[in-house]
Simulated assay, not measured.
Amino acid sequence: MFFLPLDSFNLNENDLVLYNWNFSGFIGSMFVHANIIHLLGNMIFLWVFGNALCAAIGNIAYLFLYICLGIFAGTVHMAFDAHPVVGASGAINGVVGMCVILFPKNKLHCWYFFALPFLWFLKAGKFAISTYWMVLIWLVFDILGNLGSPDGIAHYAHIGGLVGGVIIAIIGLKFKLIETPHQSVFDIGLSKNLGVAQYQLNAEAPSSIYEPFRHTKIENQTVEDKSLYPADTNNSRTSITPKKETINNLFPADTLSMQPDIQLKHCISNETTLTLYLVNNGAPLKFPKLRVPKEVKAQMSFTNLIRYKETGWIRFSTDNITIDSIEFLIYYVDSAQQQRKIRFRCVPAKSSLELISAN
């Protein structure tokens, strides 16, 4: 299957096959596949992992890195195998390698089926698996493939691309060239160093404090509800039982004297949808809850705990109202087991997040 118009580039089929270190093969082999099954298999992996990576680094950087990863994978293949090769799997494994560093704990939802027609047996279902487990299984497959007899698969290209992707992702995170709203391997390592444990919520605070409030500037019109803060808000408490850890483990000593410091890294807005990419540079926030304008729907990546230096996102959306300014509340439980709230205002046009109040 060919993706490049051969006549336009004055090439023939052999020029698009990687062999004998030919330069056109390094590029062309990424766009050529042996058959439709080969093509579809690669495109599924590219669709699953490529979309996530492209959303994190942007279209231009994604295309550039895809080509670089393909060349790197081809170089490793030629150095250790040197058999003629076609296919995008080397470059795609590079994309996968970057994803395992940027999104190691993200879940992959997989479908499967197993059939024995002569027994009239069919089994189908789905399961979820973390990114790093999927990649580890695939890596073991490639390693075993290199140790066994030749099977027509460019295992060295797969391994080379994967390693190249891991290296690029680590460099990108280390020098802050890549930002992700999800937990990267660096974030996971940091949370372990801080001794952060999991919590169990025994009793929810009164549900009224999580009801939507009506205070936002939408399409240059401000609507305010005087009952923004229910009377029981300041007196409400949440009962917390830490699992296996003391409160000092959950809030390390170097963060106990700090206050939460939510900062905006960048935002993406397209009129009716606004996504804020945030980082917490202060004390951890337990059980964060959003309170948003009545006209707005909200989602956030944070779950039971916003750790020190953890990154994440909050996404606001409306049905048909343009969001040019929005105010929202984050309720949380502090290290003293007290219910707190922080109020913010965001103006997408200015990429600004203003702290209005914290108490």
Rank of each mutant, 00 (worst) to 15 (best):
L329D: 11
N304K: 13
T255A: 01
S301Q: 01
S301P: 03
E310H: 00
N220M: 06
T246C: 03
F344L: 01
E224V: 15
K286T: 08
Q338E: 13
F287R: 04
Y277P: 07
F302M: 04
I326F: 09
I218N: 02
N235F: 11
N281E: 09
Y277Q: 11
S236C: 05
D232V: 15
I342V: 04
T272Y: 13
S239M: 10
Q259G: 05
I306R: 04
L278F: 06
N220Q: 12
V296W: 02
N281Y: 03
I342T: 04
S236R: 01
Q339V: 05
S227N: 15
T322C: 08
T255M: 07
T311M: 03
L290E: 10
V347H: 12
P288W: 06
P260W: 00
D334S: 11
V292M: 09
V347C: 12
R315K: 14
P242T: 06
A336L: 11
D319S: 10
K226E: 14
N248I: 08
I262N: 00
V347M: 11
L264A: 01
T275N: 07
S257Q: 09
A298E: 05
L250E: 08
T322A: 09
R343V: 06
L290D: 09
L250W: 04
L274N: 02
A298K: 10
V347T: 15
P293S: 03
I323K: 04
E224G: 10
T303K: 14
M258F: 04
T322G: 06
I247P: 00
S257I: 01
T241E: 11
E295S: 15
K294T: 15
I218Y: 06
K309Y: 04
Q339F: 00
D319M: 09
V223M: 13
C267W: 05
P284F: 08
S317Q: 00
I323Q: 04
F302N: 02
I323R: 05
N249R: 09
L228A: 14
I262V: 15
I218A: 07
S301T: 08
P242C: 06
R340P: 00
P230V: 12
S227L: 14
C267H: 03
E219D: 12
V333R: 00
T241A: 11
K341R: 09
S269P: 00
M258G: 03
A231T: 14
I314T: 03
N248P: 02
S236V: 04
S236E: 05
T322Q: 08
N234V: 08
S301H: 00
V347R: 12
E224A: 14
P348T: 01
P230Q: 12
L305M: 13
P260T: 03
R315A: 09
L274T: 03
D334T: 06
K265N: 07
F344T: 01
T233S: 13
T238N: 04
N281H: 10
S239W: 06
L250N: 07
T275D: 07
D261H: 08
I268K: 09
I247T: 03
Q299A: 05
S269G: 03
